Computed example of a mutant assay.
Amino acid sequence: MAPGDVAAFSQDVISASLEHAQDEYPREACGLVVLVAGAQRYVSCRNQAEGQSHFVLHPEDYAQAEAEGEVLAVVHSHPNAAPEPSEADRVMMERWGLPWLIINVPVGHWRLWYPTGYRPPLIGRPFSHGVLDCFSLVRDYYAERLGLELPDFHRPDAWWEKGGNLYLEGYAEAGFVDVTGSALREHDVLLMQLRSPVPNHAGVYLGADVVLHHLQNRLSGRETYSGFWERITRKVVRHRSLC
């Protein structure tokens, strides 16, 4: 992934991006570069993320910008960090299909990056909720190993603490059926309840008592499926195409 030429954007856009990033510091700022009536504009957007270490651009702000003109790039800041894309940035850049202008604050350095078809590895990826998390790993596993595209559900930070029950309410829509109590098969998805009132963690059974999963604050990886993980499993689901 090579950086691009920031000269592609006007000085007014760069200045407005830097000012917004400084105003939001130490929280990440986010915005869009939009082409309106032949002129570039920087549009500041709301960051819906609860923490300070990532951003979730408000969908209403994106829709409004898209209604006004052509979205040219996504902009966000890296407080106290270099303007290099994180693993989550690379994944989201591919999803959006747009260049990303990343700004370091308070220093004020910036770089422009382009999507290149990047795909994160299944093993060893860092955790970023909603981008690289346990459900993302299940989706990527099914796409890479089985050629099956699973829907991507919106999942706010700590949804399980806010009355959400996304796994139990969404597995059927994603094409899975409940096979709890049956002998485990390779590719089965294990729905686990980890310090939560509802199942909030998922892993893929690889066979031979091994589970592939991704925990918060840890890299994704394989572990023996027994003991603790087996005890907190609440449901086993299998994709209809594998039944």
Rank of each mutant, 00 (worst) to 15 (best):
D188L: 00
A16F: 01
L132H: 03
R185N: 09
P199C: 08
H129Y: 02
S10G: 13
H213Y: 11
P106G: 11
W110T: 07
W229K: 01
R185A: 12
V36G: 07
V56G: 06
V210Y: 02
D133W: 02
G147M: 02
V34E: 08
Q216D: 10
H239Y: 06
R231K: 15
L35E: 15
T224K: 12
V6C: 09
D188T: 02
L212I: 04
I232P: 10
I123L: 09
S128C: 15
D23K: 15
M1H: 11
G108T: 13
E60M: 07
R238C: 06
D140I: 00
N104Q: 15
F135T: 00
E161M: 14
H54S: 14
A63P: 10
I14V: 13
S196E: 12
A183F: 12
A2M: 13
D178F: 06
L194K: 13
L150Y: 02
W100A: 07
H129N: 04
P3E: 11
G130L: 01
W229N: 05
A29M: 13
C45R: 01
Y142N: 06
V236F: 00
R90E: 01
G164M: 06
R231Q: 14
Y62N: 08
T224E: 10
G207A: 11
A183L: 15
H154C: 03
F153S: 02
V43C: 13
H187M: 03
P199D: 09
E24A: 08
A88H: 03
R240T: 12
G31D: 10
Q22I: 13
S182Y: 12
E94S: 00
A8H: 12
L148W: 08
Y142C: 08
L146V: 05
P85Q: 05
A67I: 07
